[in-house]
Structures are given as structure tokens and as C-alpha cells.
Design a protein around this nucleic acid. Sequence first.
DNA 1: TTGCAGGGGTCAA
DNA 2: TTGACCCCTGCA
Length: 296
Amino acid sequence: MKYKGYDIDELPDRGGVVISNIRDFEPSHIFDCGQCFRWIRESDGSYTGVVSGKVLNVSKKGLYVIFNNTNIKEFQDFWFDYFDLGRDYSRIKELVLKDNHMKEAVTYGHGIRLLKQDFNEMLVSFIISANNRIPMIMKVVENLSKMFGKKINYNGRLYFDFPEISAIADAQLSDLAETRMGFRAKYVLNSSKMAIESDITRSKLSEMDTCKAKQHLMQLSGVGSKIADCVLLFSGIKYDVFPTDVWVKRVMEALYLKRETGLNQINEFGTNYFGEYSGFAQQYLFYYAREKRIGA
DNA sequence: TTGCAGGGGTCAA
DNA sequence: TTGACCCCTGCA
């Protein structure tokens, strides 16, 4: 069947959906570009993730992208938006293609898409990401989900949904410490409580301009400029942000600024240079820089 | 085997 | 503006 320009079909025997004419969609680019922590690469090259109480397996074979463990209705109601399929990434690429550096970065990460992820999950996950490595972040988020999240069975394996923010807010500091999140435990606990008490939600932040939304997030404990940008971008709330971490600093210094530059200055340069779509530009640059170890 | 540096930042002095 | 911070990994 046709759905919003896509050729979507239900897989006959096992529950799943296949799209045969998808563009700008490469699972490894999407799941390994640093925006998410709960998609695991399987031995067959597919990825399995837990999102909002659902387990999904995604693979690409030639031009076909296969979504296992879903159906047409759920795909249309939920996954379509999660994978940002309503957005024309070919157009996004044109808009961020300001120079030859971006041409290389965009060519390299041509299948990147920005996922629209749960706001509370992004908030907690990126607080955990501070001064931490991706494998560790993934382990801690998994531990947290095992401790407070709902169990889900899929393919003979047990998965755990990311916890409700209230479950984290009600936790003991000692419980959170057991997830091995270290000094970030007090930040996670405080911010979960504050997010609930101050009613900081996706819809509230969406109504604010980007600067105001960022300021609101930065009132939370353990949330500075970089993490606020990440939360806004990866929840799909704001796209005119330019999360500036050490890899973005390295690539920007190496390719654009040609000298040692402060994080704030780089952040300002990025948002000015790329404007409304700086968040997309940041993802292409980040993926390119980290995979190629530019400036390391 | 043991020891030490450092990581996709933030906070407090 | 600078160092401490949990914990884990990689590498002497």
C-alpha cells in the first residue's frame, strides 16, 4: 500500500512491515551516531531496540527496510514519527551543504535520521552521558531499565522498557548507585524530581523559543549547555541547536576554525553558520568526526 | 599482575 | 577558570 509517499507492506508470516522505497535511511548511521543508547546491533547486522514499551528489530536488505515485530497500524501511528519519516532528508542535506567539509560529512553519513525520542528518557540518559563513554552509558541505562522498567518478551528474550520518570524520582539514591552511574546518581534523582515538580515536559518546552527552552533545562541539576542541546535535539523538540562536545570541538577546530576555541564560541559559530538546521549539521559532523577520528 | 590516565560534562570554589 | 567527580577500559 501507499502511505505518505512510501510503499509499505505487511510481512506475510511474521509480524512486521517492509518499506521498499525508503531513501536516506541507513540503520548503522542512525543507531551509531550517538543519539540513542538502547539500540543493540545483532550478529546479523540488524538492530533491536526498546522504545515506549515496544520492542522493534530493524534491518536493511538492498532497498528494503524491514521493521520486525510491528504492524501497519502501529507503524503509521508510532514508528513513522519516531523515525522522522515525514521529513525529506534529501532537502535537509541541501540545506546544510554549505561547503566541501559538509559535502564529505553528509556523503559519509548519508543515512542518518534524527529519531524523535521520549523526552524524559533523553533527559535522564544524557545526564548519565556526562564525562562518560557510550558503552558505559548503554550499560547504565540498561541497568536502570532492568531495575525500574516494565518487562517485555520478544523472540524468547527478555527486554525492559525505559522507566517512568516518576519511578526514578521515587528511587533511593543507593538504588540508583547500583546501576553504576556514579556521581551522576544525585543529578538523575534531583532532576527527575524537579522535572515532575516544575512540570517540565516536551509540550511546555516546544512552546518556548529555543533559548528559553534551553535555559529551563539548564536549571535542572547535571544539565549544562551541551546536555540541554542534546535533550532538545534528540527529543525532536528543537533543531536549531548545536550540541558541542569534544568531538564536535575537534572537528570544528580542525576543519573550520583552525585554532583552539572555547566550547561556547564553537556552539555560537555552529548555530550562526548552519542556522535553523544546525542540529542536523551537527549530527553529520559528529558521526563523520568520530568514525574518522578527526582531530583525535 | 598492578597502577594509572582519561572519557561524547557539570558544578562549585 | 580550574579541579574533582564514579566507574570502567586500555595500556604500560
